[in-house]
């Protein structure tokens, strides 16, 4: 709670002096149906589903959210550095943070990080889940299964990559949020769990697929591990799949999926942030 403690006196001072110019702010996170329910095969009714017929569900989708900051040119930075672990498979939205009597006005600069954190606490995750993330040093952990025509493949992947998402905008390209005077505002960091199965790191027309991941199960034990994915040279896959844009360091499927963790956090549904690798 380091940053929260630092900022509370500021907020109290601002609040006591000009209470009419403050409002309340709640930040939440939500995993959408793709994480909470699953990713169906693509069909006429689910055109955004998995294109090669697999049905994918998460049993656990843990993410560490930390370093929340909100600011504007005229408003000092407020926020909370505390890292929190959320299990996005639980029905959301989940409250991350509620701040009262923050300066009213436009907070155009909004940012959050996903990163490993040894001092992370529970957002909505269990103590066991928090311990798993802190001891393993993961920022994201995805566990689940994919099924097609009686075949089941399971996966349990932990990722250590840290990403700062800054300058968050909503789907209408409006930066940040507005705290109304005497009122309250709620804003959401939306987690796009379907991105782990996208087949391109850059192309906005990327689709979800699982065939190459399933085929990576070299020992045929039913579980696709990151080591097995690392053995898959992307150049052995069809040339129109798993494009890496400009990230020439991504040469195998494990690193491809790992790189997709840099695109998980969105703002207010389909809004975007700029992502920097930590």
């Amino acid at each position: 709670m380091k940053h929260l403690q630092l900022y509370l006196p500021l907020l109290a001072a601002l609040g006591s002096g000009c209470s009419a110019q403050t409002g309340d702010l709640t930040l939440t996170t939500y995993g959408e149906e793709f994480i909470e329910v699953g990713m169906p095969p693509a069909s006429e009714s689910s055109p955004e589903g998995v294109v090669d017929g697999w049905s994918i569900t998460y049993d656990s989708f843990l993410i560490v959210l930390a370093d929340i900051e909100l600011a504007d040119e005229d408003i000092p930075m407020i926020g909370d550095a505390q890292a929190r672990v959320f299990d996005m498979t639980q029905a959301g939205p989940h409250q991350i943070l509620r701040l009262q009597q923050v300066p009213a006005g436009n907070l155009s600069q909004v940012q959050v990080s996903t990163r490993p954190a040894a001092d992370a606490v529970a957002g909505n995750a269990t103590a066991e889940q928090v311990q798993r993330m802190t001891t393993q040093g993961w920022s994201v952990f995805a566990q689940g299964k994919a099924e097609r025509a009686g075949i089941t493949k399971t996966f349990a992947w932990g990722f250590e990559l840290g990403t700062r998402y800054r300058n968050c905008k909503d789907a209408d390209e409006i930066s940040g949020l507005v705290v109304p005077t005497g009122g309250s505002v709620q804003a959401e960091f939306t987690i796009h769990g379907d991105h782990l199965f996208f087949d391109d790191l850059q192309d906005p027309s990327a689709v979800m697929r699982f065939d190459a991941i399933a085929a990576a199960d070299a020992d045929m034990d039913g579980e696709v591990t990151l080591s097995e994915l690392e053995a898959v040279d992307l150049a052995t896959l069809p040339s129109d799949q798993y494009g890496t844009g400009g990230d020439g360091r991504v040469l195998d499927l494990a690193h491809f999926i790992r790189d997709q963790t840099r695109s998980l956090v969105h703002f207010a549904g389909e809004g975007h942030c700029q992502a920097e690798t930590l």
């Binding site: 998402y165 796009h192 790191l201 850059q202 906005p204 400009g246 840099r262 975007h272 700029q274 920097e276």
Partner: peptide, 29 residues
């Protein structure tokens, strides 16, 4: 528009001019 990946090209320039890479706009250039 900002590139999704600064990548090697910027890394190479970074070596010369002290810049850094890893600017990204997640998933959608």
């Amino acid at each position: 528009g900002e590139p999704l990946f600064a990548g090697l090209a910027e890394d190479m320039l970074g070596l010369l001019f002290g810049g850094r890479s890893a600017f990204a706009h997640p998933g959608h250039y």
